[in-house]
């Protein structure tokens, strides 16, 4: 037993490759890295829309610099800027059509090289989240959202919270892994409302038993 514990412990300790173990590694400056990135995508030959995909905005730059763990004052700055720039629905209604929200959650199409810009861009929520208990093909990079609305008694506050989270997750947690669906105009306000309905409509499969 002691042997097993020791073996497991040493396996855990030995496994990660740490850059510090390699002697004489140079420090790569931000300028050097950015030059390699621009060259690697032939930046000079790209259309403006594609150039913009390569250039980092302030949030991306800071989250890269701190490897997603910014010090408290930087985190507070990112969260504040994100919250202030959120655009809420003009009519104050947060819930759309859950069936459209389900389709958006399953849809991973759009914004890739060669994708048709006229087709609907998906939210691809299932890539990272469990949602309806009937859909078994879900990812685990994000938390499970099974029963999301029901577990929160379909509360208005919770709905608004999730609107903010989907629009710009950095308003909730700086340097979140999740894309900024509203800020980066991946989804429209109407699209976000459909996804919210998928999470919060009592008739949505997300809130029904298996």
């Amino acid at each position: 037993m002691r042997f097993v514990t020791a073996a497991a412990l040493s396996a855990c300790l030995a496994v990660p490759v740490l850059a510090a173990e390699i002697p004489g590694l140079p420090t790569i400056s931000v300028e050097r890295r950015e030059q390699a990135v621009r060259d690697g995508f032939r930046y000079d030959k790209l259309a403006p829309e594609l150039k913009a995909r390569i250039e980092q905005d302030d949030t991306q730059r800071l989250c890269t610099e701190y490897r997603n763990e910014p010090p408290p004052e930087v985190a507070a700055r990112i969260e504040k800027a994100a919250l202030e720039a959120i655009v809420f629905p003009e009519d104050g209604k947060f819930l759309g059509d859950w069936k459209k929200g389900e389709a958006l959650s399953l849809n991973g199409y759009g914004l890739r090289m060669g994708d048709d810009p006229k087709r609907q861009v998906g939210g691809n929520c299932y890539a990272c989240h469990e949602m309806a208990p009937t859909e078994l093909s879900y990812g685990t990079l994000g938390p499970s959202l099974k029963g999301y609305g029901k577990l929160r008694d379909f509360a208005q506050d919770a709905i608004k919270e999730v609107y903010i989270k989907i629009y710009n997750p950095n308003a909730t947690v700086a340097c979140s892994t999740m894309p900024r669906f509203g800020t980066k105009k991946i989804l429209s306000i109407d699209d976000i409302r459909h996804v919210l309905a998928f999470l919060f409509d009592p008739n949505s499969p997300v809130n029904r038993e298996e």
């Binding site: 890295r33 390699a36 990135v37 995909r53 390569i54 250039e55 980092q56 949030t59 991306q60 989250c63 890269t64 490897r67 914004l111 894309p179 900024r180 980066k184 991946i186």
Partner: peptide, 10 residues
């Protein structure tokens, strides 16, 4: 580069 965030999805 492995840790560099960019494009639509960050």
């Amino acid at each position: 580069v492995f840790y560099r965030r960019s494009s639509y999805f960050d």
